[in-house]
């Protein structure tokens, strides 16, 4: 190591070496790490984390938190439709953020909607992560014609806008289920599956490229060669040696992609190919509310829109921070 770099040690290397086993050690290491340190020092990141956490709590505990159940058609009363927020002249305390055209409480709809958005977001990020990491690892590790094939595929997909790819996949899958009625899926589940598949399949490229790049670097490192000399099976080398060492950048992408997936879902729902209005996501709420924007009932679209914007912003800020915190060059 060159002298000049000496005083900025690798993450955690200043930590007092202790032989604490298991979870306690892991927890200790985390709170002792530079990542935690940089988190504590950034108020914006703490704010973003708090907001994200709030959405998660809302998503998990939605049914207990929300004042009404917007999915229960029996409880809806058309007389309650389009009531403005509580603080306005015609507002009612029952509906803090007002109601939509069907008389649903907007606050409750947003809480349930975030739940839908986050579930679809997470599932699709997970799907693209698995596909992207797998293909990226194989591409970088095996190289040659397989690498060329996977990367050309990625480039072809990249040359189309992601939303177009999602729409295409969406259409194909819906078409498939229509011609194969033996699957017998109900509308809502189908909508979920279609959304996750189309968003997930349209976003794997970034993971694949990043993982391939890191794999190319790691593959030539001596610890990988040492494993080859021992005679470890290449698949095991990929899984046990290389994968853990390429996950850092993947986590960063995953965070940012979560925001992107939520937006894509909203866009697809807004375009009418997403979840049906009976179980609205944030995107569906915005679309429905859009019709009333110019007739004065602004709250029907503005509140879901703001909820989406805040969620996406918070997750993005977290992703940006994570990228910087894990990047040794910026530390």
């Amino acid at each position: 190591m060159a002298d000049a770099r000496m005083p900025t040690p690798a993450p955690g290397s200043v930590a007092v070496p202790t032989a604490r086993p298991g979870l306690a050690d892991g927890v200790h290491r985390f709170f002792d790490s530079d990542v935690w340190f940089s988190f504590k020092r950034s108020p914006i990141t703490i704010g973003a984390a708090a907001v994200t956490l709030l959405y998660f709590v809302m998503a998990v505990f939605g049914p207990w938190i929300a004042p009404h159940d917007p999915f229960d058609l029996a409880k809806l009363d058309l007389l309650d439709s389009l009531i403005p927020p509580a603080w306005m002249a015609d507002g009612e305390a029952r509906f803090p953020l007002g109601t939509d055209d069907q008389g649903r409480d907007l606050l409750s709809a947003i809480i349930y909607g975030s739940r839908v958005s986050l579930v679809i977001g997470f599932a699709s990020v997970l799907l693209s992560m698995v596909i992207g990491i797998g293909l990226g690892l194989i591409s970088g590790f095996v190289g040659g014609a397989i690498d060329a094939f996977i990367m050309r595929m990625a480039e072809i997909q990249l040359s189309f806008p992601a939303i177009l790819v999602a729409l295409l996949i969406n259409g194909v899958i819906i078409g498939y289920f229509k011609t194969h009625p033996e699957w017998q899926v109900d509308q809502v589940t189908l909508a979920y599956v279609v959304l996750v598949l189309s968003i997930g399949l349209s976003n794997w490229v970034q993971y694949a490229r990043t993982v391939r790049g890191s794999t190319l670097v790691e593959r030539n490192k001596e610890y990988v060669q040492a494993a080859h000399v021992i005679g470890i099976h290449p698949a095991m080398i990929m899984w046990r040696h290389i994968l853990p060492n390429v996950m850092g950048p993947v986590l960063v992408i995953a965070t940012i992609q979560l925001a992107l997936a939520v937006i894509t879902e909203a866009t697809l729902s807004f375009l009418g190919v997403g979840v049906p209005p009976t179980e609205p996501s944030l995107g569906t709420l915005i679309r429905v509310g859009n019709d009333y924007l110019f007739s004065g009932e602004w709250w029907v679209t503005i509140f879901p829109g703001a909820a989406l914007a805040i969620l996406v912003l918070a997750v993005n800020l977290l992703g940006d921070w994570l990228r910087d915190a894990l990047n040794p060059k910026l530390r």
């Binding site: 001596e222 610890y223 060669q225 060492n245």
Partner: peptide
């Protein structure tokens, strides 16, 4: 038949 490598910083898996 085993091997010892040059770079002690790269020859051990950091994880």
């Amino acid at each position: 038949l085993q091997m010892i490598f040059q770079d002690p910083y790269a020859s051990l898996n950091p994880r």
